[in-house]
């Protein structure tokens, strides 16, 4: 189970698939989700297998999520911000008007 080694500090709140997630200021979307115990961030585009964070440094692209309507954002490279709407990606993201599947 994930655990913070410190308490306190300013927080921001965003939602992941509608569920509120509290992040510490400076958290990436990925670290905030990890702290909340959320490990499944998307389903893969070919087989639909579940995926989560893997490298945490922007290399592997496994933590792709939809943020404020824009798909394929790297959760580990995006700072968590107040009021963000984050959604898990289900399989292939179709490229249609507005960028939404």
């Amino acid at each position: 189970m994930p655990k913070r080694i410190e308490t306190g500090g300013a927080t921001v709140t965003f939602t992941f698939d509608g569920r509120p997630v509290t992040a510490i200021a400076g958290d990436s979307v990925a670290s905030a989700l990890a702290a909340a115990g959320i490990t499944r961030l998307r389903d893969s585009v070919v087989s639909g297998a579940p995926r989560g964070i893997h490298c945490m440094m922007g290399a592997c692209f496994d933590c792709l999520v939809e943020i404020d309507g824009i798909p394929n954002r790297q959760a580990c490279m995006t700072l968590a911000a107040e009021g963000m709407t984050v959604r898990a990606q289900q399989g292939a993201v179709s490229v249609s008007e507005g960028g939404r599947a």
Partner: peptide
């Protein structure tokens, strides 16, 4: 994850598994 990812969680978010 990679071990490096665990360390990044600790460095950047004070988070441990």
């Amino acid at each position: 994850t990679t071990v490096g990812a665990l360390q990044i969680l600790l460095k950047s978010a004070g988070l441990v598994e």
